[in-house]
């Protein structure tokens, strides 16, 4: 996983609440046994006017000209801003895989669903929770300014833009998740450093709860 320190990028406004993982990456694309290649099918049912299936040449499909990802002004955007409860629904990690493959590095929303939130960190995407009023302000600024950009600094937990009256806000993040993201850590490797501790725990645990020892 690539370490995440600072990211400056163009903001894409997705003005919807409860954006679910079925919308982020529809089920037919979950048949893949790989982690990559989901980007062209991110938000497939909103992004295209025809029905998408795995293996199709997406460049030949009919795009929905009204959908936000298809508007030229948001081309190459890497920061997605959305409304409450982003990423609700299934546990499919294909959702952050699709966002990452498309080029999204940061998602900003007033709230996230728990599983999606955790899955982002495992893939080097930074989900940022900000007050609804700040998210509202970002939506206004994106609307009023073509090619609106934000800088996210993870070390100082700040987001800011380069306006005269700069939007400069602090965001909360769990310290463990922060350090994993900043160092691009493989958390399995990290856990396995405690191998003996886990083995000891397991031995003790199976003595206390012997019925959990077998199959």
């Amino acid at each position: 996983m690539e370490p995440f320190n600072e990211h400056k990028g163009l903001v894409i406004p997705l003005d919807r609440a409860n954006v679910d993982t079925d919308a982020i990456i529809p089920k037919q694309f979950l048949k893949s046994i790989k982690k990559s290649g989901f980007g062209p099918n991110l938000f497939d049912e909103w992004r295209y006017l025809d029905h998408g299936e795995p293996g199709m040449d997406n460049s030949k499909r009919k795009i929905n000209p009204d959908f936000i990802l298809n508007l030229p002004r948001y081309k190459n955007g890497s920061i997605l801003v959305a409304r409450e409860n982003f990423g609700c629904g299934s546990s499919r990690e294909h959702a952050p895989w699709a966002l990452l493959d498309f080029g999204i590095k940061v998602v900003i929303a007033p709230s996230f669903a728990d599983i999606f939130y955790g899955n982002c960190f495992k893939n080097g995407i930074l989900p940022i929770v900000l007050d609804k009023s700040i998210v509202d302000e970002i939506f206004i600024r994106v609307d009023e300014n073509i090619r609106y950009q934000i800088t996210v600094n993870l070390r100082s937990q700040r987001i800011y833009d380069e306006h005269k009256e700069s939007l400069d806000k602090y965001f909360e993040i769990d310290s463990f998740k922060k350090s994993c993201l900043m160092e691009g850590l493989d958390d399995i490797g990290l856990t396995l450093k405690n191998k003996t501790e886990i083995q000891n725990f397991e031995k003790n645990y199976q003595e206390n709860f012997p019925w959990l020892k077998g199959e």
Partner: peptide, 16 residues
Amino acid sequence: IGTSDVEHVLATQCLI
């Protein structure tokens, strides 16, 4: 859990 955590549990029997 997501797939990264599936892998984590396979390898460590634990979850963070």
